[in-house]
Structures are given as C-alpha cells and as structure tokens.
Design a protein around this nucleic acid. Structure first.
Lengths: 353, 353
DNA sequence: TTGAAAGCGCTACCAG
DNA sequence: CTGGTAGCGCTTTCAA
C-alpha cells in the first residue's frame, strides 16, 4: 500500500493525505482523522526511500567505528553508548547507521557519508586532544556532536562529556581517606582526551594533600586485559608496591585483578581496586564496600543525551555549539550482595570533591 | 556534483554516465575511462537516497537489538559480532542499521523495517528454541540469517552458529583430565538455544566417563556479573563445593571470579575456571595455563561470515537456506604472559572430543 | 554504442 | 481547506 493507493481509497489527493499524515495544520480535522484511520486500517507505512529522496534528508545518524587491527576488541563502553543513542533515534524516527572502517580510512568514511548524503549527522567517538575530525567535519559541513572533548581544537564544536577529571579526583580522594598512600593509576593512552583528564584528576587529589605522584605508579597504555595485567604486575613487583589501584576501564581492570590474584594477594584485603566504567569495583580496607565511578548505565544515558543534542542541532543548524558535562556516578554499597541501587547509600562527604 | 552535472561536463547523457559508472557492458571502453576519470576528478559520489529509490533496494542490512530494562547491559559479544558484520557490509557498499527497541516491540520493529523498505535483510541475534522471529520473518518475506539456531522451528531458515555443544564438551573433558570431579556449570538461561546446547555438551562429557552431573552444580540464569556471583557463591558454600567452574560468558565470569576471591580461594590453585567467550580464562591444577574456548575474535569472524551469507541470500533470493557451523577455538598457553597466539601450543589430544 | 524519457513514492509549491 | 504538478537524483526500459 502506497500513498497514491491510500489516497485513491479515500477519494482524496495524495497531497492531502500526505499533509494529514505529517501533521500539517491546514488539513480539516475530520479529514485528518479519516486519513489516520484508513492509514492504520490498511497498515500504511510511507516508503522511507521515497521520503528521504523527496525531503533531501537522510533521517539517519552515523556512527563511524574505526577498527585498528583485525583482532582488537570492541570497547564495551561503546556498545552501551550506542544503545542509549539508539533509543533516542528510534523515538524520533531516525535510523542509526554504523560504519565499521579500518582506522586509516576514517576520514574517507566521513567524506563519503557527507557526499552520498546517507546521514544527517554523526557522533564522534573517542576524541583525542585537538582531534582532526572536528576540523574535518566542520569543513565538510556535516553536523556532529563529540562524545568527549577535543581539547585544543580551534574550531568550536558541540560536545557531551563525563566529568572524568572530577570522577578520578573523587575516587583518588576516597582511597586517600582510607589511608592509602601508594596508589597506582592504570590509565588509558594519554593522547586520548579523557585519559589526560583522568590523570589530571588523579594527580590533583594527591597534590591537594601535599603528596607527589610516584612516577613508577603512573602508567598509560591501551585499555586491554593484557596491558592492564602487565602494568599491574610490574608495579606489584616493585620494592614498594602499591596498596591500591585506580583503573581506567573494565577491560584493563580484569588484567589488574588477574595480576593481583597471581601474586597471591587478596582484593579488598591486601589491595584495593577501583575500576572506572565498570559496574562493580573493589575497594576495601577494613570495610567491605565496592565503589563505582561512572557506571555503565550512565554511559547509556550519555548516549541518549548526545543523540538528543545532535537531533536538535540538525533541526536548528544555525545555533551555537552546545556543550554538556555530566557528573559520573559515585556509588557506595555492599560488595557481597547484588549490585546496589544508586540510592542504596549516600555518597559520603569525603568522597565528594 | 550530481549525475546530470557530471554528464554535462562530459558532453554525455546521464544515461551513459550511469552505465559507465555501474559497469554496464555496452559502453565503449574509451568512454568509460573518460567517465571514470571525470568522476574521480570531480569527486563525484552518487546520491545514495536517489540510488535507493531508483533501484528499489535499501542497500542496508538491519540488526534489531531488543533492550529489556533501561539498565541492562549490552552483551559485549554482540558488539564483536556487529564489528565483524560491519566490515563485510562496508566492503560491499551496504550500510548497517541498528534498531534499538524495547523488547516487547521487537516484532513491530521487523514489520516496520519491511514495510518502510529501509533494509534489504536482517540478522537475528540471540535465538531461543523455536524462536518466533523465524516464522515472522519468513512470513513477511524479509530475508534473514540467524546467528545461532532456533531448534524446533518448523520453518526452514539460514543460520550460522558456533558449535557450542562441542566447545563445552571439550572444555569439560579438559577439566576432567586434570582430575576435577566436582565441576560446576554456570550457564545462561536455558531457553536460549546456545545455552541449551552448552549444557548438553557439559553433561555429555561427564556421562561419557560414567559420571552423573550433580544438580546442585548445574545453574542457569542471566549472564550478568551479579547472577554469576550469586550462583558461584552459593555453590562454594556447599558442604562439597566445586573444584572447577565452567562459565558461559565473560560477564558472569567476572562474578564467579569475585565469588572465588571473596572466599579466600585462589584461582588456578584452589579452583579452576574456564570462561567461554572470553579472551582469557583460568584453568590450572599444578600447571599454570589459561584456556579459551570461543574467543572474542572468533565472534568477530562469525559476524563477518554471517553478513556474507545474508548478502548472498539477498543476491539470490530463490536459493535454499544456507547453514554453517563454526568450531570454537580451544587454546592453551601460559597465563602469566600476554594473550598467546592460537598456535602457541597445540591442543592436547585429551582436549579434543 | 548512445540518448530520451518514464518512472521510483513521496513532498512541497502554487492555484483555486 | 484541497488538488494539480513539478521535482528529488538516479536507474532502466525503449528507440535510434
């Protein structure tokens, strides 16, 4: 059933039917209801291909996922973000198109999306400092929102980010309050904007108490289980090993856990661990409490909001760049039960920056 | 730059230019080269919206992701599969469109995709036994490939699956060979087809040695960290606790690891753990070796192959249903180093079924 | 081997 | 408030 047929059934012109269905104000309400009813009855759905051509809009948002090696794992945080964004798109009648491309073809992928008109905008993932994609997208005129920030970019741009610096500062403070003095940071690669901010938050917390970060306890590498393991194992073999770890991701966190286990240490008794972006972390020193910083469900919420931001930019292309900074969750609860609800226990004062 | 303009520049008709670009045989080779060169020079890209309308094809494949609760995590295995499929789509000029929908709207989502013609086919994820989606998709005539199987389905259908039964049988055999007799299975929900097959493989291995699976060591639940933790903790508190765990997923595996740690047991010394779909598992009894069953990179490969299968079905709609069964990796290596290559050590004979 | 012209199914402009 | 009509940019007959 297409528009012409439906119009014919109703004894109306396709024009009127189209207007009725799309909520144009000039249609008689009685007519509109008749059209709506018939559309439902005949199970009419406008052909999206025709709609897209006629309107000149793609009704789709792109997400470009660069893949470095054939065996690299997809970041699970990315999956959560995508899920959140997808919800927003569905609600607004947009499609989400994912482009998986080798990372040296990322720029070409954006140009292609623009040239072929297959999307109305894109969300940029995993920005680096002064990320070249910001300039590129502004240049080719493809609307975009950055998930994260690209510090140092000359081009103004819209972004949505989690306050990584504060999250890591708070987590570090928490460990310091428990008496830890040898705290290790297992960070991501620090040309990534978020990783750089996390390190700043970490060192800020130490310096605020007159402590100097020990260089041998500061590490930065890809967030894989293998790298997390290697970094933690190396530190645990030091003459003065760390008593606590602050880890940047669930995946490297798994490696850290393994390194600790292998050394015969018990997490929560001999060593405290806080893992960011995970839904369960180990942080104990006499008390049996897990601590989350950004939880995975908050990543989902970030996806939702970033998508909303992008849709509003597309609707109002002339507007100023929009920015939004989300605070990461910081949740305390019992580690032996199921994952606690956000409100299970208030965040203690000392855990707030 | 559109087709008309390009044709004008060349002093040719749009018809000829289109034919030249699309490889039609009737154009003069000299003309074709002239057209190709000009297309490249002007950086011409056909407008995909127009192409889709004109051809009546969507040049896109859909993946519907049902989301149960607002806080449920996205399965990371799904992300790997998607990445693999995406590579295949890109190579073939197809878009990948993801639909994230509440799980009670999944059927509607498929009908919508079909009615609006926004995709040429879909891949079905996480099939249950006799999954209703198989019948639905056959009925509405939307080409599809199932990742996994839907045992008991009356409708014939195309699928690609990992040999879960054999993977779990081999893993169980491996633990048995090490002398374990109290082996726990931390399985997914057993109305999921893959979970059912895994349990069968597990019990087969036991029964082949005249052992009876202990009901208190057989568990089946959602594959979350919380559930994995709860199930393992419960078993460890038994009068006769298990000495080994076979776990269905990386996520529930994290919960199992936590339960073991909390009890003061050391993984690889007091308890062996094999985690499926993970890239690193713990399996030790005197020897220090990890074991993988299906690795995450093999999931990526499954995505690639499933996508290829679907594209071939779309190209040849009349063909017979295609099926393909992949063998899961089984890799043995040192647990203390970085992840070993597949060939690091041969699979010992006793680990083969 | 090339070109003219008729759609694909919808939206949007302009008349009435 | 409703309808005729001209595209959107491409593909695909059909004629030459």
């Amino acid at each position: 059933m297409n528009l012409k047929e439906l119009a014919h059934q109703l004894g109306l012109s396709p024009t009127t039917v189209s207007r009725a269905l799309n909520g144009y104000p000039e249609v008689n309400e009685a007519t509109r209801e008749r059209v709506m009813a018939a559309a439902k009855r005949f199970n009419y759905r406008p052909n999206s291909r025709a709609q897209r051509l006629a309107t000149g809009r793609a009704l789709a948002i792109g997400h470009v996922i660069p893949i470095a090696s054939k065996h690299e794992m997809v970041n699970p945080v990315f999956a959560d973000f995508i899920a959140g964004a997808g919800e927003t798109y569905s609600r607004n009648g947009y499609d989400m198109v994912l482009s998986v491309v080798p990372d040296n073809e990322e720029e070409a992928a954006y140009r292609e999306l623009k040239a072929r008109g297959s999307v109305d905008g894109v969300i940029v993932h995993g920005p680096r400092m002064d990320d070249p994609r910001v300039r590129l997208l502004a240049e080719i005129g493809l609307p975009f929102v950055v998930h994260g920030r690209a510090s140092g970019s000359q081009t103004p741009y819209s972004w949505l980010d989690v306050n990584n610096r504060r999250a890591f500062r708070r987590a570090t403070d928490f460990l310091l309050d428990l008496g830890h003095r040898r705290i290790a940071l297992i960070n991501g690669l620090e040309f990534m904007d978020f990783a750089m901010r996390r390190r700043i938050g970490f060192t800020e917390a130490l310096e605020a108490r007159g402590l100097t970060p020990a260089p041998e306890l500061l590490s930065s590498a890809e967030m894989t289980e293998g790298r997390g393991h290697a970094m933690a194992a190396g530190m645990l073999a030091l003459p003065e090993p760390p008593t606590a770890f602050l880890v940047a991701s669930m995946i490297s966190g798994m490696g850290v856990r393994r390194a600790v286990e292998e050394r015969g240490l018990r997490i929560g008794r001999d060593v405290s661990i806080i893992i960011h972006d995970d839904d369960l972390s180990y942080m104990k020193n006499g008390e049996d409490v897990p601590i989350y910083t950004a939880t995975r469900s908050s990543v989902r919420e970030a996806g939702r909001q970033a998508a909303e931001m992008l849709l509003s930019i597309i609707a109002e292309p002339s507007g100023e760049p929009q920015t939004r900074l989300l605070e990461a969750d910081l949740i305390i609860g019992q580690s032996t039960g199921p994952a606690p609800a956000a409100s299970a226990r208030p965040v203690p004062a000392h855990a707030r920056t």
